[in-house]
Structure formats: structure tokens, C-alpha cells
């Protein structure tokens, strides 16, 4: 037996065991749905939680100067207001699947990490769907 490699092997086995029991156990329930939170709000108070759901249409407020982002996350049943500081990822938009990491402070969820859940389906933009002039103007204004 070559001791050096045996030690390395045992370290790796310990890491796998840790990931399998500790890490995987936690990541099996990777996120909590808003309605699951509503069933038992006490359970999640003051604890780090990942909240998963859709961005409610028309609920996004972003201040580019202070980087304050506010939106409502919903699973179609329960709606929870979310506050997050930071520029949202590029794919962040209405009705997008998102996972927010953070803590509940009363009824409001304070996120410190915002993740996008995109679909497994890929397709090019609609052929021939040319943007109308006012849509182009809107895009340009949003890009500022």
C-alpha cells in the first residue's frame, strides 16, 4: 500500500459521503414553493431559505441607481414580495422561473442571491417577426 494515495483516497471517500448524506440531503429540497412557506411560515423565519417560483407579471421594480430590485414571486397560489440588491441576471423578466436565496423578514423575503431557472427547450426567435418601430424604441430606452 502506498500510504500517500491511500490517504487521498480516504479523503475523497469522506468528501463523497459528506456530499451524499449532508449536501444531497439538503439539495433534494432545493427550493421551497411560496405555498409551502404559507403552510408553515414559522418554520422558515430567520433561516436561510431558497424560494422558487415565477416572477409575477408586472411586479418588477428595479432602481438602476441604488440597485434595489423588488418583485413578487408566485407559484400561482401564494404571492410573496421579494427584495433583492443587485442587477438581475439577463434572463430575469416577467413570468420567468427564479430561485431566490435569502431570509424571511416578516412577510417580505430578503434575497441575497438570485438564480434563473430556464427551460430545456431551445428555439430560434420567430422568423419574420420584425420589431415595430415603437418596440425598437422601447428596447433602446430599456438598454440605457
Amino acid at each position: 500500500m502506498r500510504t500517500k494515495y491511500l490517504v487521498g483516497f480516504l479523503v475523497i471517500m469522506a468528501a463523497i459521503a459528506y456530499l451524499a448524506w449532508g449536501g444531497l440531503g439538503k439539495s433534494l429540497v432545493y427550493y421551497v414553493l411560496p405555498s409551502e412557506y404559507a403552510d408553515n411560515p414559522q418554520k422558515y423565519q430567520g433561516k436561510r431559505v431558497r424560494l422558487g417560483g415565477l416572477v409575477k407579471e408586472g411586479s418588477v421594480q428595479f432602481n438602476p441607481k441604488t440597485l434595489q430590485l423588488k418583485f413578487i414571486i408566485t407559484d400561482g397560489v401564494v404571492e410573496i414580495p421579494v427584495e433583492h440588491e443587485g442587477t438581475p441576471p439577463e434572463l430575469f423578466k416577467d413570468n420567468q422561473g427564479v430561485v431566490v436565496e435569502g431570509k424571511f423578514a416578516g412577510k417580505v423575503f430578503h434575497g441575497d442571491n438570485l438564480l434563473i431557472k430556464h427551460s430545456e427547450s431551445y428555439k430560434p426567435p420567430q422568423q419574420g417577426a420584425k420589431l415595430k418601430p415603437e418596440e425598437v424604441r422601447k428596447l433602446l430606452e430599456e438598454a440605457k
Binding site: G23, S27, L115
Partner: peptide, 18 residues
Amino acid sequence: PTWGVYWTWEPKLTTSAI
């Protein structure tokens, strides 16, 4: 650039790490 993070301990990534 898509999810917003390089890594997160979610099931696919955790099982990939294992």
C-alpha cells in the same frame, strides 16, 4: 450568464460533483 451563478448545490450539480 444564464442562471446567474457558477455553481449552486442543487441535485444535478451535487450528483455531478459526487
